[in-house]
Amino acid sequence: MGGEPVGAETEEQPHGAAVVADGFGLKGPRGWAFREVSFRAEPGALVAIEGPSGSGRTCLLLALTGRMRTKEGHAEVGGLPLPRRMAAVRRITALGQVPGVSELDPAFTVAEHLRERALLQRRFDGSVRALLRRPAERAATARARIDEAVRAAGLDLDALPKGERTSVRDLERLEALRLSIALALIGRPRLLAVDDTDLKLSDADRAEAWALLRSLAAAGTTVLAVCSEAPEDALRITTLSGARTTAAAPAAPGPATTAGTEGDGTTAAPAATTDGTGEDGTAEDTASGGTPADRTAAGETAAEDTTDATTEEGAADALAETGRA
């Protein structure tokens, strides 16, 4: 952040958005979804949020993309502070598949999904000048965006059972993942977020999925991916029981760095929590927040805080309150 004004960005900066979290935490009515999340990822980083189901992985993903409001600590995405500028963060980020938030419609065909997303992109994010273009020119622009996104997602329309007329319900798991990513890429986001990246994938398909996400990160888009097991070359954020979170740098040299890690890539120590009450924002989708209990000792860990319910309950409550993004 280096003393620059919060939110300051220049055209010379990379396309991807840097992500910084410091003592970031979210609490639902029955407990913490996650807390004490601290890390730094450079633009174009591949960040893997790993951990068991119910450990707050999805809530962290949604909070970092401006879809859930936090009350503890702070974070920045592309220089935009959270939770104060959630709406602005949503404009530079996009969700791939997130169950209950941005799911594919099984009755739609691939072509229908792509056309609908391109239409929405043009309607809500396009300039006035673009809206005044001739219909043929608008259609050509939309088609070009679709083709660009499909190529980037590695979705081979000709290889599908009925081409682009294939229904979502007839797609293999990996192809559905590619479609959800293509839809997100139509908006040319600076940060792409994908939930359940490796769910129900074979070893070969899992390798293909991570290869795809690496290629997107290499092209400049920052990628956040929830998974059960992160690859070694990703910046790994591990959600644990008791709402504790650790961060570990990639095993191989990469664009991501981790705040609080040593040069050998050892696990970062959790940052101290803050009595964060947050700042009022303009987001519509929020999660209930709460003020953490006062620490009784400077070295107290999240696991020792017995005033809150389980992580799984907190994550479920917080996610249930997001609504549709």
Rank of each mutant, 00 (worst) to 15 (best):
G2W: 05
E4P: 10
A8D: 07
T10D: 09
A18T: 02
V20A: 14
D22Q: 15
F24P: 07
K27H: 14
G28M: 08
R30L: 10
R30T: 14
R30A: 09
G31F: 05
F34D: 09
E36S: 15
V37G: 05
P43E: 04
G44Y: 03
L46H: 02
A48G: 14
I49Y: 00
G51W: 00
S53K: 10
S53F: 01
G54E: 03
G54F: 06
S55C: 13
S55I: 06
G56Y: 08
G66Q: 06
M68I: 10
E76Y: 10
G78V: 03
L82H: 00
A88V: 09
A88N: 04
A88P: 01
R90V: 05
R90I: 09
R91W: 04
I92W: 05
T93I: 03
T93P: 11
A94I: 11
L104N: 08
H113W: 06
E116P: 05
L120G: 11
L120S: 11
L120I: 13
R123H: 10
F124V: 13
V128Y: 08
R134D: 14
R134F: 01
E137P: 03
R138D: 07
R145F: 00
D147Y: 01
E148W: 04
E148H: 13
A149P: 06
V150I: 12
A159I: 09
A159C: 01
L160F: 03
P161W: 07
V168K: 02
V168Q: 05
R169K: 12
D170N: 12
E172A: 14
L177K: 13
S180R: 04
A182L: 05
L185S: 02
R188E: 13
P189A: 09
P189Q: 13
L191S: 03
D196Y: 00
T197D: 08
L199N: 01
L199S: 09
L201P: 02
S202G: 14
S202V: 09
D203N: 04
D203K: 12
E208Q: 15
E208A: 15
A209S: 12
A209W: 06
A211N: 11
R214A: 15
R214T: 06
A217D: 04
A219C: 05
A219D: 13
T222F: 04
V223I: 13
V223T: 06
E229R: 15
E229L: 14
R236L: 04
L240Q: 11
R244T: 14
T246N: 07
A249W: 03
A251H: 07
A252K: 06
G254Q: 05
P255G: 02
T257E: 12
A259Q: 12
T261A: 15
G263R: 15
G265M: 05
A268W: 08
A268V: 00
A269P: 05
D275T: 12
G278W: 00
E279V: 14
A283V: 10
E284H: 02
T286C: 08
S288C: 00
G289A: 08
G289Y: 08
T291F: 00
P292N: 08
R295Y: 07
T296N: 02
A298H: 14
A298I: 06
E300G: 07
E300F: 03
T301I: 02
A303T: 14
T311A: 11
T311W: 00
E313G: 10
E313I: 10
A320V: 07
E321L: 15
T322L: 15
T322V: 15
R324S: 15
A325E: 09
